[in-house]
């Protein structure tokens, strides 16, 4: 088959290391059978790969599939064609953000996490959970209180993160990386 330029399929094949292995997908379903989140996905991995091959790009990028990927690599180690499935899921997240086509708030969770790392150099659970839930699910965050108290009483939840000493250096590195990667 011919690849549509700039399609999801073509981008995976040309931009991702070992991405061309996606061409050899057998639709065997080992990935879906191994996936711990498959039942909660709009399309499980095998189905998603069929949609990619069929050029259904918008359906693909609007799916929650890759946002529900837990990065466990179970599919990757079981794939008989050695397709880097987890890396493809990462790449699809990237493509969905690029095109502004995402319907889940998982992207905001990643955003909160990344923002925290870029600000402090380290992550801390309370800031992550609070920042994400207060912004996106203010009512849900109340439900988290008993668990948070349990963690705090056992000294496992910090109120403030530790900022690394040389934050300026880390920022310079990340800014440069973003500049090259853009």
């Amino acid at each position: 088959m011919t690849l549509e330029p700039n399609s999801v399929y073509e981008k995976i094949i040309t931009e991702l290391p070992d991405g061309e292995k996606l061409k050899s997908c057998l639709q065997c379903g080992n990935c879906t059978g191994s996936c711990p989140s498959a039942t909660d996905m709009d399309y499980a991995p095998r189905g998603l790969f069929a949609l990619i091959a069929a050029g259904q790009d918008e359906k693909v990028l609007r799916a929650n599939t890759f946002w529900y990927c837990v990065s466990c690599y179970q599919c990757t180690v079981r794939c008989p064609q050695e397709i880097p499935i987890t890396d493809i899921m990462y790449h699809l997240k990237h493509q969905a953000i690029e095109k502004g086509l995402y319907t889940t708030d998982a992207k905001d969770f990643s955003g909160t996490f990344i923002g925290m790392v870029e600000h402090f150099g380290r992550s801390f659970e309370l800031g992550l959970a609070a920042g994400f839930h207060l912004l996106h699910h203010p009512l849900e965050s109340v439900k988290m209180a008993p668990m948070a108290l349990g963690m705090m009483s056992r000294g496992r939840l910090k109120l403030l993160p530790k900022r690394i000493k040389n934050m300026g250096q880390l920022r310079a590195i990340l800014d440069k990386a973003k500049e090259i990667g853009a």
Binding site: R122, I164, L174, G181
Partner: peptide, 24 residues
């Protein structure tokens, strides 16, 4: 003065800064 490894979040969204973050 080590920094965060980015967990699964950073890698999944922005590859090059994620590698640079860990490489520091």
């Amino acid at each position: 003065d080590w920094n965060c490894c980015g967990a699964t979040e950073y890698f999944s969204v922005n590859q090059l800064p994620a590698y640079a973050l860990v490489a520091r």
